[in-house]
Amino acid sequence: MRETAYAKINLALHVRRRRDDGYHELETVFAFVDAGDELAAAPASQDSLRVTGEFGGALIDPFGNIIAKALTGLPHGPGWAVTLEKNLPVAAGLGGGSADAGAVFRMVRDAYGLPADWQARAAKLGADVPACVESRACIGRGTGTELEPVDGDLAGCPVLLVNPRIPLATGPVFKGWDGIDRGPLEGTNVREIALNGRNDLEPAALQLVPQIADVLDTLRKTGAWLVRMSGSGATCFALFDTPDQLEEAKAAVPSAWWTLAGALR
Rank of each mutant, 00 (worst) to 15 (best):
D61C: 06
I139K: 13
F174H: 11
V133C: 03
L239I: 05
G179M: 03
T52K: 12
N199L: 02
R2Y: 13
K86R: 12
A70R: 04
P75L: 12
E3I: 14
W118V: 08
T170D: 01
V33C: 05
G22A: 00
G231M: 14
I60P: 02
G171N: 03
L208D: 00
V133L: 02
F105E: 02
G73L: 06
P130C: 09
I139P: 05
S45V: 00
K8A: 07
M1T: 01
C236L: 13
N87G: 07
I9A: 12
A58Q: 10
G156E: 10
P89G: 15
V173H: 11
L216V: 13
S48N: 00
R136F: 11
R228Y: 07
I67G: 09
L11A: 01
L114K: 06
H14T: 00
V159W: 06
T143I: 15
S255I: 13
V133W: 05
D61I: 02
G97V: 12
L147D: 02
G73K: 05
A204C: 05
I166Q: 15
A58S: 11
G142L: 05
G113S: 01
E247V: 11
D21P: 01
K124H: 00
D37C: 09
A91D: 02
G96W: 14
A155F: 12
K69H: 12
Y23L: 06
S135K: 05
R16C: 00
N65A: 04
L11D: 02
G156H: 10
P78Q: 09
E186C: 11
A120E: 14
R121P: 00
E186T: 10
E248F: 13
T235D: 08
G187F: 10
D34K: 08
H76G: 03
G179Q: 04
L88V: 07
T188H: 13
E148M: 09
T235Y: 11
W257L: 14
A58H: 08
V253K: 08
I60T: 12
E38T: 15
Q245N: 12
E248S: 13
P167G: 10
T72G: 08
R191C: 04
R2I: 15
N199D: 09
